[in-house]
Design a protein around this nucleic acid. Structure first.
Lengths: 107, 107
DNA sequence: TAAATAAGTAACCTAAAGGTTACGTAAATA
DNA sequence: TATTTACGTAACCTTTAGGTTACTTATTTA
């Protein structure tokens, strides 16, 4: 795996990476800990972790020869920001509906 | 394009599709309206729209020979639900920190 | 200090996402 | 009604994400 440079959205597009984030929501894990939960090889897991790290979804702490992964807010916040943008759409849609109702049903 | 069956997350992984959603947040548009905003061919846009539709991000209304696309909540809500799951992680992390501080600084 | 363990890197392979062009079909218009 | 317009579908091509195995390096531990 040649570690592609993926953006925040592509990063969570992969089901394996989403599963990794789920696992890490329970506790911090090492690369091998994570690999135990997947069919894929350890190097493959290693690559996914690198991608998650680059995108700000996890922080990494090296302890001896082990590498502990922990969830990090940054990546999630970027997604949240994107979703928030569309809130304005639903809000204005609701306003329009209300205006329409007020016209049709004066009182 | 053979219209792959993508899940909600893969769907917004593509930058072109995100741009389409952005454009549709301004106003409902036809396939050709959308295609005007991209370098890609119209059939390519058509495929993206099909994918967005299947994933619940847009609704489609055929008016004559035109096809109007409008944003739809479903897809967005699924993403929101996923993000919400992780809120619990940050919340519990904060609680742990508070507990720790209360122990270290008892008054 | 020799052996085992944790993990990164390199080189490679394959399936599929995302694009294209060519063509078919139904609705609008001259 | 002949033509143009809006769009879908089919067949195809190319890039690349995601996987593999083989090897290297750096810590533990027996």
């Amino acid at each position: 795996m040649a570690t592609p440079a993926l953006d925040t959205f592509q990063v969570i597009g992969d089901p394996s990476r989403r599963k990794m984030l789920m696992l890490l929501s329970e506790e911090s894990l090492t690369i091998n800990n994570l690999a135990d939960n997947f069919e894929m090889s350890r190097p493959a897991v290693s690559k996914h972790i690198k991608i998650l790290h680059n995108a700000g979804f996890i922080s990494i702490e090296d302890i001896g020869r082990e590498r502990y992964c922990t969830l990090k807010k940054d990546g999630f916040e970027e997604l949240q920001a994107w979703l928030s943008y569309f809130d304005q759409f639903w809000a204005s849609k609701l306003t329009k509906l209300e205006t329409l109702l007020n016209k049709k049903l004066p009182n």
